Amino acid sequence: MTPRDASDDPSDLPEDNRWSDLDRPPLNAASLRRALVRGGGLWTSLDVVPATGSTNTDLAARADELPEGAVLVAEEQSSGRGRLDRRWSAPARSGLFFSVLLKPGPSVPVERWGWLPLLTGVAVATGLSRSAGVDTALKWPNDLLVTVGGEERKAGGILAERAGSGGGGVVVGIGINVTLREEELPVPTAGSLALAGAASTDRDTALRAVLRSLEQWYGDWRAAEGDPAASRLQEAYAAGCATLGRKVRAELPGDRSITGEAVAVDGDGRLVLATGDGVQEPVGAGDVVHLRGV
């Protein structure tokens, strides 16, 4: 259980059932702010709310008034969203549900902003490896995978959306199942850090690690003007991507699909498929289904 000190604001805690599940203590917002919000760093504010519809929606609504580096965390989301408008829901305090506000311009060309979800995936996987001691992999473009009982399962997802006047900012939402139990899984293909045998499921520790990792990767990428090769982002993503080397089916907009072997992630962050007729086709948007193991 995470200790609290006399300086902690009671408003940081859910009021109605703060300790109803002793395996799932609330996040220590004051401690997180002390550890992460500092002069010269990326993170400029960090707020924890007991519940909300969607942290992405809430943060996007304030994108113009907030500086880059605002972080909004919810102990529970009632309208969490994934890609393709899929719902993301989980019991209160069973995971990490948060959004961050990034404003990459003008140092990073807009055409390179598409790397932000992939960058976030690398940062999340790196941070969780360090803090939770669990092996994770990335499914293109934005799913976090863990292994439960020898099966590949989804334990997290990322959703990036343009925000602010003229689309000058990007809100990146991250959802990670931390202590979700087998009987609580929304679908059989879902998983959690706990079910994957994580050495630690302390959410405060995990959130600090993920945000520090994201700060480092984002800083390097921005310093390289968004160049995925110069910042080593492209190399790191490929190394951790479970989709590469697999036979997959890409379900594309317009009810079209492509089946082939995923052979690369190109400089634009697109997944390159080698099809049966010898053509290499890049996929920039769509849903990817893994058809066989490595």
Score class of each variant (00 low, 15 high):
142 N>Q: 08
193 L>A: 00
102 L>A: 08
126 T>K: 13
125 A>R: 15
255 D>V: 09
114 G>R: 11
247 K>R: 15
62 R>V: 10
218 Y>S: 10
290 H>E: 14
236 A>M: 06
112 R>T: 06
152 E>T: 14
118 L>R: 11
44 T>W: 01
292 R>G: 13
283 V>K: 08
232 R>Y: 09
185 L>K: 12
173 G>L: 06
109 P>I: 04
151 E>V: 04
106 P>T: 06
104 P>W: 03
226 G>W: 04
30 A>I: 07
118 L>P: 03
163 A>C: 05
77 Q>I: 11
274 A>Q: 14
237 Y>V: 12
174 I>N: 00
209 A>H: 12
267 G>F: 06
292 R>I: 08
26 P>R: 03
33 R>D: 04
18 R>N: 09
188 P>D: 09
260 G>I: 05
148 V>H: 05
162 R>C: 11
240 G>H: 09
272 V>Q: 10
144 L>C: 07
215 E>P: 04
254 G>N: 07
129 S>F: 13
286 G>T: 01
259 T>K: 05
118 L>Y: 02
123 A>N: 10
149 G>K: 11
28 N>F: 06
64 D>L: 08
83 R>I: 10
233 L>W: 02
282 P>D: 10
183 E>Q: 13
187 V>T: 13
69 G>R: 04
3 P>E: 07
48 V>K: 01
95 G>R: 05
139 K>M: 06
281 E>H: 12
19 W>M: 11
41 G>Q: 14
138 L>D: 04
102 L>E: 07
31 S>I: 02
180 L>A: 00
291 L>G: 01
8 D>S: 11
249 R>M: 11
42 L>K: 06
162 R>D: 04
71 V>Q: 01
234 Q>D: 12
121 G>Q: 02
50 P>Q: 03
103 K>T: 11
111 E>A: 13
136 T>K: 10
205 T>R: 15
165 S>H: 15
38 R>M: 09
273 L>G: 02
253 P>T: 05
74 A>H: 05
